[in-house]
Design a protein around this nucleic acid. Structure first.
Lengths: 159, 159
DNA sequence: TTTTTTGTTCAATATATTTTGAACTAATTG
DNA sequence: CAATTAGTTCAAAATATATTGAACAAAAAA
């Protein structure tokens, strides 16, 4: 595969990643910025390079980068005697998706507990369903920590 | 706690569940409908009852109910000689959140494989990070099936 | 057949989100 | 000090999404 063909394919993936994250609740431009930082061979982009690469306004770039930074998806580094910021994907939370599930499970569990508490009929179909639903949440929550530990252990063996 | 007080608290939870699902990408009205079906003591609502309970237009109710049905979050049952549809929360997929994670992990894994494949430098920081990211995805994916099986086994012992 | 019930559909309105672009700031360079 | 660099901010425009309400449809009841 020649360099030009690869570049074309990479830009296609940037777009499809953009779409994906768009559906996940990112702004379209934020999705494309993230895609660019993940996919392209260049590992660090300055503000101005993002503006050029994606052909967007400075305002949008500023907004999108702040958005991604706040969501902990990117970060920037700086160099001495250089005011530019070099943006790159944040490389230190590979558990993001799993942590996200953990958060949702916890949140949902809280809701369900309140709901159960307020139900008049503790024998109703909804009561029983929600109770078993809560138990599944607890079951998976209890294991998420285990899995992380197990994964870390596996990693150490590899090293 | 008297009945009136309980009702008030239940309606509060309906609102907070509505907000939560709103952030998760549901329409505000859909979130409230779902909340109502989860929280209130009444287990089945007709179209008209939803309209009254939430004080919304018929169009919104029609739209919200269709939306929730398509997302497999509610269902309706009917009775002979009765044209009304009785809506209730869908009680048969307690693994929804977990299945959702599974889907996301699979989706992300596909993206990452494509990205890795197209990277020019297989020794770059991003390449190595994304590779370990992919491995975590595979690790958890492999376990999700196990967990379901394990959970089902636990349930059978209980019964 | 006419009326009522139980909805759906769709155009218009309301609301929220994204994006731009111009004006601005603060630091650095000449 | 003036000019340049590297952005941020914010109001306005563009776009997308949600909601309403009126008109409609299909089945059942009168």
């Amino acid at each position: 595969m020649d360099s030009e063909e690869r570049l074309k394919k990479q830009k296609e993936i940037v777009e499809s990643i953009g779409c994906y994250f768009d559906k996940e609740g990112l702004q379209p431009i934020a999705g494309r910025i993230l895609g660019t930082l993940m996919v392209m061979d260049k590992e660090q982009y300055t503000f101005e390079e993002i503006v050029e690469e994606l052909k967007i306004s400075k305002g949008s770039a500023s907004n999108g980068l702040r958005f991604l930074e706040m969501r902990n998806m990117i970060e920037y580094i700086t160099h001495p005697y250089d005011r530019k910021r070099y943006f790159q994907i944040k490389r230190h939370n590979p558990f993001a998706l799993i942590d996200d599930l953990k958060f949702k499970l916890e949140r949902m569990k809280e809701f369900i507990e309140k709901i159960l508490d307020l139900k008049a009929d503790k024998n109703s179909d909804n009561y029983r369903f929600l109770k078993s639903f809560k138990e599944i949440h607890e079951f998976f929550l209890a294991r998420i920590i285990e899995y992380k530990t197990e994964y870390d252990k596996n990693q150490q063996i590899k090293i």
